[in-house]
Measured scan of single mutants.
Amino acid sequence: SNREKAKQAFKELLRDKAVPSNASWEQAMKMVVTDPRYSALPKLSEKKQAFNAYKAQRE
């Protein structure tokens, strides 16, 4: 689905920018907000969900 693709793109973005798994949401956003993939997930709640999944995978 498109939403799954968007989630993957967002997680790839976090990986590409080397966002550490112990980063806070605010720290992570400063690192990725300028990338076009930041807008892949329109809802903030979805971004946070993908971010938390990313962190869980990295730990």
Rank of each mutant, 00 (worst) to 15 (best):
V33F: 09
K7S: 13
R58T: 11
P42E: 14
A6K: 09
W25S: 11
N52D: 13
K5Y: 10
R3C: 14
K7P: 02
W25M: 10
T34E: 13
E12S: 08
R37G: 02
Q57R: 08
F10W: 00
E4Q: 09
D16R: 01
K55M: 06
E26H: 09
Q57M: 07
K47V: 01
E46M: 05
S45A: 11
S39W: 08
A28L: 01
L41Y: 07
S39A: 13
Y38P: 05
L13Q: 08
V19S: 03
A50N: 02
P36N: 05
K17G: 02
A56E: 14
K43Q: 12
E12Y: 01
K7L: 14
A50I: 10
E4T: 05
M31S: 11
R37L: 02
D16H: 00
K17F: 10
M31V: 07
E26V: 06
L14D: 03
Q27N: 10
F51S: 04
A28P: 04
N2A: 05
K17D: 01
A18Q: 15
E46Q: 10
K47A: 04
L14M: 02
E12Q: 08
A50C: 13
S24Q: 05
A9Y: 05
R3G: 12
S21H: 13
Y38T: 11
K43I: 01
K47C: 02
K48M: 13
S24A: 09
V32C: 11
A56D: 13
V19E: 06
E59T: 11
A50V: 15
E46H: 01
V33T: 13
M31W: 00
R3M: 14
K7F: 15
A53N: 12
Q27P: 03
A23G: 04
K30V: 05
N22L: 04
M29E: 11
N22R: 03
A40R: 07
E46Y: 01
A53C: 10
L41V: 10
A28Q: 07
F10Y: 08
K30E: 14
P36K: 07
Q57I: 03
S1I: 12
V32A: 04
A28M: 02
R3I: 14
K47M: 04
K11M: 15
K47E: 04
E4V: 00
R37P: 05
E46K: 00
L44V: 11
P42N: 02
A40C: 11
K11S: 13
L13N: 04
E59H: 09
Q49C: 09
E59L: 05
E12L: 02
K30G: 09
V19T: 09
S39D: 12
A6L: 03
K11N: 11
K11W: 14
E4Y: 04
K11L: 15
Y54N: 04
V32M: 10
